[in-house]
């Protein structure tokens, strides 16, 4: 059989697809557009990850593979200190804001009380208020509190991990409330009636029925609070004191001098941790 050469060329195949209606201009445009959007989103991140393994000490050219920057990172006490601070702040603020946020969500979902609508509006405010405003407000507030403490007890306090933790709790609560309320909305309250009918008091109803069933929502809220705390910069910058800086602030201070592959390495690690947390929360949500 004689092969008809033109039919096998790429341009001919595309022309064929057009004439058969498998390919349209709008479909093609949409595909190209989607690819561009994804490139826009992910190319910088991919480059960051790649250049955390380059031998080039300025981290901008590929000169060969190495783990050196990760090793150096783990031997850098300032970086490791900041990472430890970040984990402590994130853990404490997550636990506190999850407990407060869950209780608040329960109160708002379950009870009608005076001022409920006002609280409803106010609780979401920290989500929309510019973070810089929150940061300045918290900074000013902490200064006032420190002044009061100094006048009353004579003790001179400085900003430290506690102040930054309180700041993180303040903005995390709102996010926890949003997530937990969603799972409370989907919770069938007749199950609580059934439990009461079977002899459970309110303590047992909560711990045996309500809590296990809204737990995925609570975990979702906690993971959100944790990731928000991990990468928070503005409030952390304003509220942390001397010698207690958090990882994003420490990274920023380094970058001001020079971008090194070490920065790429720590960024990559934070990226992996965040992605792992998001994946974990997805898995937990799906288990429901």
């Amino acid at each position: 059989m004689i092969k008809t050469a033109p039919a096998t060329t790429a341009s001919a195949r595309i022309r064929g697809a057009f004439s058969e209606g498998r390919l349209t201009w709008s479909g093609l445009a949409l595909t190209v557009f989607s690819i561009l959007v994804y490139l826009f989103l992910y190319v910088p991140i991919v480059i960051l990850v790649i250049f955390s393994f380059t031998r080039d000490e300025f981290g901008v050219r590929w000169t060969g593979f190495t783990f050196d920057w990760y090793i150096r990172l783990f031997n850098n006490p300032r970086m490791m200190g900041a990472a430890w601070n970040t984990l402590v702040v994130a853990t404490v603020s997550t636990i506190v804001s999850t407990i407060i946020g869950t209780l608040l969500a329960m109160a708002m979902e379950r009870y009608r009380f005076r001022g409920r609508n006002a609280i409803e509006g106010l609780i979401y405010l920290p989500i929309v208020v510019p973070e810089i405003v929150m940061a300045v407000a918290l900074l000013a507030f902490s200064a006032i509190i420190f002044d009061v403490i100094r006048m009353v007890t004579g003790e001179v306090l400085r900003r430290n991990l506690a102040t930054v933790t309180i700041g993180h709790i303040a903005f995390s609560i709102s996010f926890v409330v949003v997530v937990v309320r969603t799972s409370l909305k989907n919770f069938d309250r007749r199950l609580e009636e059934a439990a009461a009918d079977l002899g459970a008091d309110s303590w047992n109803i909560f711990w045996r029925i309500t809590f296990p069933l809204i737990l995925p929502g609570i975990i979702g809220g906690a993971l959100l609070a944790f990731t928000l705390s991990l990468d928070d910069f503005i409030i952390s910058l304003f509220l942390s004191g001397p010698g207690t800086s958090l990882l994003p602030v420490e990274v920023y201070n380094r970058v001001r001098r020079a971008i090194t592959p070490e920065i790429n390495a720590i960024s990559t690690l934070m990226l992996i941790l965040s992605m792992a947390l998001v994946a974990l929360s997805q898995v937990l949500q799906r288990r429901r």
């Binding site: 069938d188 007749r190 009636e193 059934a194 009918d197 296990p212």
Partner: peptide
């Protein structure tokens, strides 16, 4: 007393 509910209200977990 105990109740059998219309929706059964079985504990899903």
């Amino acid at each position: 007393v105990n109740t059998v509910f219309q929706s059964y209200a079985l504990f899903p977990h």
